[in-house]
Design a protein around this nucleic acid. Structure first.
Lengths: 336, 336
DNA sequence: CGCGTTTACGTCGTTCGTAACGATA
DNA sequence: TATCGTTACGAACGACGTAAACGCG
């Protein structure tokens, strides 16, 4: 059994049981991969794949088990390489991050800029997608960090580090009726208007909807979008009142939009950064986490490393002590 | 990085940093091992060992981390091989068991006999030792199963499967004063005599001593031994009253000793069988567990596999439902 | 006949063991 | 000088790539 054989095995399994595709992905010849698979099966004395004629038809029951173990082996081999690169003080490498629009557009730019300054030689890959797409990317093993908000149900094999909390902001065209309300803005006020807001990922927070329902209100959501820019566009068109993450209400918008801080109207959301369990974090990865989750220090990461379950980790972080991230601080109308 | 290099690395680490010894253990030449270590260090770009002149002086901090990962890799590689052998319906292999005297002498013989009948081609290695010695053998990785009684503190990296419970028996020379007591035997009765019993492993059950103390009694232990045979020998000599595991009071002893069942006098002890976490159990290993712990079926093992902590496992087994193992059933005087 | 896999074979790099050398206590 | 590790070198092995054959739709 060779590491290379296990690598090929995984490549085949991850490329639709197509040996040719696997070979291309490994930058090697197809017969080589084919032969190594055969040698591995020979050595183990078992079929790892079922054959349809000459092609591979499926994975045998035992094959699944072997693949599972092989993944662990390759992961630990990667970990050893990470340890080595880090030890050698190398600050080269790559960092692939999958995240949602809000983070990519409004939160990460500053962080990425700082990160690039510190680690100019680290190649950064940002991938934007919905929670489901992020989960797929995580499953495909192409991702170092996933950043998202809300439930971690889709990400059971990641360590989720709660990073910051945020509130929502109401955006309306300048001079909108809502801006004339003198008292604290209420959900009742909001419910009188057509609303434009996010389409939430499956399984994600209907926390917004629930907030209305808890007060016996039926919000009139006339449009949902995946990102705040689209929402703001429609708000500008007068389609309705926008509800966006506060981070998305940036100063540039204040020219033609009025932003009302909705802190307290809706429950706060928590955004986390997640990485695969049992992986060694390169030094620059640790730095990135600290940039993103400013309350995390070496001690916290050590505590996380020791934790045995996600619940343990959540317990480590008193939600009320997480940093709260807002948007632009100029010209915000306070709801409270 | 090759599996072989990692294997050599571990061999060096496990042989006192002596490359020559490691090479012998691996049945290969010393220069080969030396070279592979060098190649590995070269590839990783780091020193895994500190050098004292030409000899290896110690393991670097990073080296420890790499070794830890390498162990995982080798363990999973072994697991893959186990899966394969099992899949191929091979019933060859070897099974190394470390256990205490009581188990080896009184409990395992029947089980081993049955096991050998079922799996004549599996090589059996039994190693007897104290709890500490067993823990050492476990740490040295030479052992498939550890069998012992009481606290699992020494065995934190094993899965401990509670297997059966047992009571103690009192052994005295025939016609001893204790045998003339008509009522149920009490601790008070026992405390009147000099006692001969086990020397308990460090951290192990002083449950016997505690039983006396709980009644405000100070037992007069005149002799402690590591095994029941020695105890019985001294009982025969009239040195005192023996307290042994009921399994150790076998029929052959009844010729010249009187055995009094002490069920209820002392708390029941639980004996477990343990195997290393994250290891695949060969089919014959599963069978052995089932022979030893008769209440364990495939479903139980599946439940155990799924459990994430030892507490989870302990919860799976209602102690009151574990089988109770006694000794010889002929001519036992009931204490109750 | 196209797609994908296996077989065949020549080349090249790697591993291994023996033997000789070097360093350390 | 005994012990242990490294260097040197030739033989054997194994991996890889090209080319060709095979099987299946």
């Amino acid at each position: 059994m060779k590491l290379q054989q296990l690598k090929y095995l995984l490549a085949i399994a991850d490329n639709g049981l197509n040996i040719t595709a696997a070979a291309e992905r490994m930058y090697t010849s197809q017969p080589g991969v084919s032969k190594q698979l055969k040698l591995l099966e020979e050595e183990l004395g078992m079929q790892l794949f079922t054959r349809k004629g000459k092609s591979l038809g499926g994975i045998t029951a035992a094959g699944h088990q072997v693949i599972e173990r092989a993944r662990i082996i390759m992961r630990e081999a990667d970990n050893i390489r990470s340890l080595a690169s880090d030890y050698y003080q190398e600050e080269e490498g790559s960092l692939s991050i999958a995240t949602t629009h809000t983070q990519a557009r409004y939160v990460l730019p500053d962080i990425v800029a700082e990160f690039r300054k510190r680690f100019p030689k680290v190649g950064l890959n940002l991938h934007q997608g919905t929670s489901e797409q992020i989960a797929d990317m995580v499953a495909a093993n192409d991702i170092d960090f996933a950043i998202a908000t809300g439930s971690g149900d889709l990400f059971s094999d990641l360590i989720l580090v709660p990073s910051y909390r945020w509130d929502r902001s109401i955006v309306v065209p300048k001079g909108h009726e809502l801006t004339t309300i003198e008292n604290k803005l209420t959900l009742q006020d909001l419910a009188r208007f057509p609303l434009v807001t996010y389409v939430f990922s499956f399984g994600g927070q209907s926390s917004l909807k629930r907030a209305f329902e808890d007060e016996g209100l039926e919000p009139d959501v006339v449009f949902t979008a995946r990102d705040a820019d689209v929402i703001k566009t429609y708000v500008r068109m007068g389609l309705g009142v926008g509800i966006v993450a506060s981070m998305a209400a940036d100063c540039a918008d204040r020219k033609d939009l009025q932003v009302i801080d909705a802190e307290g109207l809706f429950p706060r959301s928590t955004t986390w950064i997640g990485y695969r369990k049992n992986t060694v974090l390169r030094r620059y990865m640790v730095d990135f986490i600290q940039l993103f989750a400013s309350h995390i220090g070496p001690q916290q990461l050590e505590d996380i490393r020791r934790a045995t379950s996600q619940e343990d980790i959540d317990k480590l972080f008193d939600a009320s002590k997480l940093p709260v991230r807002g948007g632009c601080n100029e010209g915000v109308t306070q709801a409270a």
